[in-house]
Amino acid sequence: MQADETLDCFGLMCPMPIIKTAQAVKKMKIDQVLEIVATDKGIKQDMPAWCKTTGNECLAIEDSGEDIKVYVRKARD
């Protein structure tokens, strides 16, 4: 999947990937896509929950076994 920016959260544990995502998304423009590369398994539940609460869109979650890539589209300011 194409992303406008990538956020490295490799090795970081909950809630750091979410907090860093919130900071990164804040700086982005509407409709831009952020790729988050993480290893914390909780992110598969957490990112959809974060997106639902903040009104953003969780486009895809890809778990390769080595890392988990999550794609978030900024849907609102």
């Binding site: 909950c14 809630p15 979410i18 907090i19 995502t21 919130a22 900071q23 974060w50 609460t53 903040t54």
Partner: peptide
Amino acid sequence: FILATTAASMG
């Protein structure tokens, strides 16, 4: 602090 900072990041 985990819950407080996460809540803040959720708006």
